[in-house]
Design a protein around this nucleic acid. Sequence first.
DNA 1: CAAAATAGGGTACGGCTAGTACCTAATGAG
DNA 2: CTCATTAGGTACTAGCCGTACCCTATTTTG
Lengths: 200, 200
Amino acid sequence: MTKRATRRRGAELEDALLRAAADELAESGYAGLTMDRVARRAGTNKNALYRRWPDRLALGIAAYRLLAKSFQPPDTGALREDALETLRLANRHWSSPLGAILRELMAAAGSAQELLAQLSDRSADTTAATWLLILGRAVARGEAHPEALHPRVATVAIDLLRNEFVTRGAPTAPDEVLREIVDEVYLPLVRARGSVTERG
Amino acid sequence: MTKRATRRRGAELEDALLRAAADELAESGYAGLTMDRVARRAGTNKNALYRRWPDRLALGIAAYRLLAKSFQPPDTGALREDALETLRLANRHWSSPLGAILRELMAAAGSAQELLAQLSDRSADTTAATWLLILGRAVARGEAHPEALHPRVATVAIDLLRNEFVTRGAPTAPDEVLREIVDEVYLPLVRARGSVTERG
DNA sequence: CAAAATAGGGTACGGCTAGTACCTAATGAG
DNA sequence: CTCATTAGGTACTAGCCGTACCCTATTTTG
């Protein structure tokens, strides 16, 4: 704790706090993210934290967002490869330490939709926009039925993988699971979409 | 805490403890489930708990299982109705206070597959067996393609709903979401399953 | 440039919880 | 009757969140 030459304020201090929180989060997970340690790591004390975030969870989420990386959707020219590649990316993310942290935060957020939203939005690889883009290109190539261009349908693959992630533990889903999702569910679904009203 | 005439032991005491834990869980959720309160409610102390369950989480899961109800798959004679009915049931469960508790427990279980398994197995409405049964009958009636009789495919509907439950907060998914899952995804998928290898 | 307002820093504390230790008392088996 | 087992009582450690209080550096402003 060497005295600092000049006292940090405002954005500078806030960055340092967030950085410290993110580091602690990466090292110890949300369970190990304690306000005291974050403050100490940033070279200050809890007051600075509580002036900016209402509680530990809010700080945790903010720090997680700092850790989450940005993402470019693939464009391999084939729907199957685009989908697999995007799933693999998400799978890697969820299977990494970050995935475990995400679990903890989602858990802690409980039913607070507002906070949950801040978590789901991360990692564009899971958003509807990404999948609509991928699928849109596939439709243009004639690989998928235009009817499938609907968020509920377009995101089925990632939704199923997320479900795997949630119900199984965090460890990486084998590539076979990804292929199953794509080959057994996603591709059949977007290719041959029979009209719903065809029968009853 | 009036002295009991006779001191409870073994199974009798264990039941009382579990009952007390389940009641506390129902009243206060997992966050409010404290060992001291459970012990006091059962008219004993923490020793009795720690002799039986290694920690709070294990007790919480055991108590949750006590609360989870059993379930009979519907048989309405139409796949669409069977699926919708089963989804509605799960939706009610997940939207009830029990659903919130399940969230907390899944969160606390983190990546411990062993514990997670104890949670997913509950409520037969979410298991593969149930969906294979429903779908099997549909195949027999000619409502679904035999190829669809595969766990990954059969459980798609409930998997998607679980995903809703996890990413949104707990509040009940509107019936429209359920219908969307069934009409836009599930039925098209199980009816017209194009061969996967048809293309690449 | 002085004074007032603002924000950072240090420290301590209340209240709560998990889990452990240790001892006494009831119970049941042989 | 004896003894091993198990229940009950109580106290304790250690950790954490969130808050309060007061002092000090920096900035603002008059």
